[in-house]
């Protein structure tokens, strides 16, 4: 980790400690979306933010070792397909988008039927999508004529 890319050693050390905590916090926000404020979108933003932080502090090579652009793109599509799959499986019980799972006891973790599952799909989609958008805005350049 003593290559020149990225920021100073202070930033790198802080990020090394905090990145995993941020990831964990993102996962918590996604998982508790049906109970507390938060859910798939904000949780996904935090998850994506952890990778963006890695990318800023260590340079893009290190970040790509953790999550390559292709993997982000696949995760992004997978998130959307999970959500769509849940909506379509409602058909097995008669109606599109039906909440077909047991609703459970309020305020317990596994409640609200399909909503936690939807949150996971949205979290993946938003996290991977945000990371992908960040990469697209920073790493790729359109080569201009004459440059």
């Amino acid at each position: 980790m003593n290559d020149r890319s990225g920021m100073t050693v202070i930033v790198k050390t802080v990020v090394r400690i905090s990145a995993s905590l941020i990831l964990l916090y993102g996962a918590y926000i996604v998982a508790y979306g049906q109970l507390t404020p938060g859910g798939g979108f904000p949780g996904g933003v935090i998850l994506g933010g952890a990778f963006i932080l890695l990318c800023l502090a260590f340079g893009k090579e290190t970040a790509f070792r953790k999550l390559s652009v292709n993997a982000a793109s696949v995760l992004d599509s997978a998130g959307a397909l999970i959500f769509l799959g849940i909506a379509l499986s409602g058909y097995a019980w008669g109606v599109f988008f039906l909440n077909f799972l047991n609703k459970g006891i309020p305020f317990h973790l596994w409640t609200a039927g399909i909503i936690p599952l939807c949150n996971i799909g949205i979290g993946l989609k938003v996290g991977a999508g945000l990371f992908g958008a960040f990469i697209a805005l920073t790493a790729f350049r359109v080569v201009k004529k004459g440059d």
Binding site: S73, S77, A78, L81
Partner: peptide
């Protein structure tokens, strides 16, 4: 009319499957 949501679901599903088939 169970097929109505399919007009939205089928192309959306296809869009994300196609996005995974870049290679």
């Amino acid at each position: 009319m169970q097929i109505l949501p399919l007009f939205i679901a089928i192309p959306m599903g296809a869009a994300f499957v196609l996005a995974m088939l870049l290679k």
